[in-house]
Design a protein around this nucleic acid. Sequence first.
RNA 1: GGGCGCUUAACUCAGCGGUAGAGUGCCACCUUCACACGGUGGAAGUCGCAGGUUCGAAUCCUGCAGCGCCCACCA
Length: 917
Amino acid sequence: MAHELSKAYDPSEIEKKWADFWVTEDLFSLPTPETSGKVFTLLLPPPNVTGRLHMGHMLNQTEMDIITRWKRMSGFKTLWLPGTDHAGIATQMMVERQLATEGKKRQDLGREAFIERVWEWRREYGGAIQDQMKRLGASVDWAREYFTMDENLSRAVREAFVRLYEDGLIYRGKYIVNWCPRCMTAISDLEVVHQETQGKLYEIRYPIIWSAQEAAERRSADAGMPEHIVVATTRPETMLGDTAIAVSPHDERYKNLVGLKVRVPLIGREIPIIADDWANPEFGTGAVKVTPAHDPNDFAIGKRHDLPQISVMDENARILEGIGDYGGLDRFKAREKILADLEAQNLLASVKDHTLSLGRCTRCNTVVEPRLSTQWFVKIQPLAEVAIQAVEDGHIRFTPEQYKKTYFEWMRNIHDWCISRQLWWGHRIPAWQCDACEKHTVARETPQKCAHCGRTELTQETDVLDTWFSSGLLPFTVFGWPDKTKDLEVFYPTSLLITGFDILFFWVARMIMLGCWFMKDRGLAESVPFKEVYIHALVRDAERQKMSKTKGNVVDPIQVIEQYGTDAVRFTLASLASPGTDIAFNPERVEGNRAFANKIWNAARFLFMHREKAGVHGIFWDGETFVASTRLEDVWIRAKLNAATVQVNAALAQYRFHEAAHVVYHFFWGEFCDWYLEIIKLRLNQGETSEDKATTCETLLYSHVIFDTALRLLSPFMPFITEEIWQALYEGKTPKPSIALAEFPISPDSLGEPQVAAGSRAAEDQMAILQALIVDIRAQRAELKVEPKIKVPINIFVNPDVKRIIENNQPMVEKLANVESIRFVDQSLAGSAGARVAPQYEMQVIYEQKIDAAAERERLNKDLVKLEKEFSNNQRQLGNEQFLSKAPAPVVEGLRRRAGELELLLEKTKSSLAQLG
RNA sequence: GGGCGCUUAACUCAGCGGUAGAGUGCCACCUUCACACGGUGGAAGUCGCAGGUUCGAAUCCUGCAGCGCCCACCA
């Protein structure tokens, strides 16, 4: 492909080109390996088919892509498996909304036609998020893409349901569930979000029914005979379904009322006063109305006391016909009317402000109504026990580790899982009800006859399964389960899961439970759906607010990408992705990383320019052996690159994306560009002799090797720009079709080459002295206000060792610090005008202009204060017997060495000050 | 009511037992032949508060204050 780089870095053009290339060349498709050795598998948390890419996705996919590319380049057979989720409620709502614009409801179409309509919708609009993923450069295996409603996955869902049923873990029953009257379906506990809401607490008088006999008894006993019992409630409309009043058995106030009957106001039903521990004497009046069909606690009381369950609302949360004057009224309208009617009868004792926690549907924000209905449940305890053990035994590792606690917390207090939904879009429950005996037959295929009575008139269950039921099975169903496939054998358990904490319970926990259960014949350690979980943070806006459509602060990743380029956005997210910390995403921050990309671009152009000038082509590298050089800057940059390599590999192994990004940024900009390229300019801008040309070629070769390695180090973070430059570097003759398939750098030092390591350390020490000297000269020039273009002579006072280092690298010092000439003197320069002292050298800038004595004195005084403070700390520690005996030797040695330096520096600084007068 | 975090330079965040760091922003100078999406130099922090452990604490422990998140059936 591209052999040369355009003058200006334009991400939009190159990103489109390579995104297409990766997909059309099928670069990331992985054939099924023979064995599971060195295989890395990652499942993409399937976005909703209705989804549009948001910053959360982008962070998630950037992290997954970095890890995936890193693993792939490091020699793993890497599979990143993409897919989309059919998202029951969300998708059904979307299509219903579309129907509504045509003035239709789903009931007008009927179940089959409606489902066909959803498929149509999916064919037309369902691919949006995949297209967006391609723009991010996500290196997934598109050939294996799945959809949770695909036939093979649907078959697996039925199989899983039937097996759980056969294991006795699925039951059907009439219980209080969370009901959304707008979605008209049951939802699980997790789909209800509780909000503190300012509401009212109403106290209502229920008239006590006194029989003549009881009344007489009371009067003779002088026991008092109250007319009413007052109950407190936040939802007066449910009184229509009251079947008892409960008081605490220990509540003296009500002791002798237990067993009596009261009349439910407005409807006149007689109900008993019962004693139950649930009633809290401290709260309200101590007496609570009991409505078993509309409250989970009341449901439990009802079971204990065998109370009738009277439902008073329909599926839309309207009062049922025939109940007082309230039939057909919406629950909140009914509440108003009931309160007014109570008031009129003087039965409303009081109304108080009361904050309560109101449950709302996560989909549509409608207030959830606890409703008595028949649903399918998963008996969760047996599944949870195994899932807890899997994590306790360390078969799944959480990063950050704190999420393990959250996971245990939830798992240990888990309730049975309501898995049926009254929707049409989804996996229909494989159960058939007998028209005659009304019992259910659960089967993989449509049964011929009832399993209980043998009759043949059967009707399939109309409910579908919770979407999370099918996604909870994905880690094995995507590999062909229930069949025993090769894929399942080599890819399961997957290696890693990267996801947000918001679906820790919805998805992560359920995958663990279901995986451990269905794969249990592999043994616990191998039954888990993934070996590691990395939980990433939330992307917030620049003000740390949660992004939300209603607040209007949602940042559209595609827009930011168009402004700065995908690479810059990816790099920004990576550099902010410190485990466990939410990300405050400010688009302005991307600017800095866009500049970084530009910097790399120009570094490449610099090398290419010289390559052209020198007529040097075909600089290729096998990616393994280092080209030798003994030049200080060459050994030094190699040592720095090795260090960066070691750090990046270590950081990625711990999902410390921010650290890896920082290391690679600092290497490229702070070391390679700022120092190395500046230094080699000396060798690249040489003359025409054959010796000069040879030097240029050597220099180019060496710098290309370094640059090539650095590009591969950066590639997982910025795949596009590195691909573009890498392809150009090899002039179309790349060793691999893509940089993404090239080798990720590993440090030669880490492979055990002690003499190389020693040489590196010496080079680093020498460069550190030269760098310090150069920086000091520059600073002194700035202080003396030497015009930038003027070269100045300098004097240096050093020991012979350092002198040799400087002499060997004199052109470097002269070029980088703009020095005319260096004179080595044999007397201390401390105190001389324009001098600076360091532990290893004394340096004086010779400049005719008069020194600003005041400024110089200020600087020296500041230095002096700092030095004195450090020295006194240093001396205090070194004078401390305890420290000397207890601190580790290297620390003590370090301080001793520093003490010597400090003494010297103090002395020199003081003498300089004295000279200034 | 339970549980979990966070508080370090103007801003965003690293560091988590051995002399306070980065990026952005800010100030000054420089359009030098890769890059002004640049270069060079510089200013800027009693590491929330109070105790404790330690030779040594931003780093470990306890308490307090502020901020945030998750879970939960108290009418």
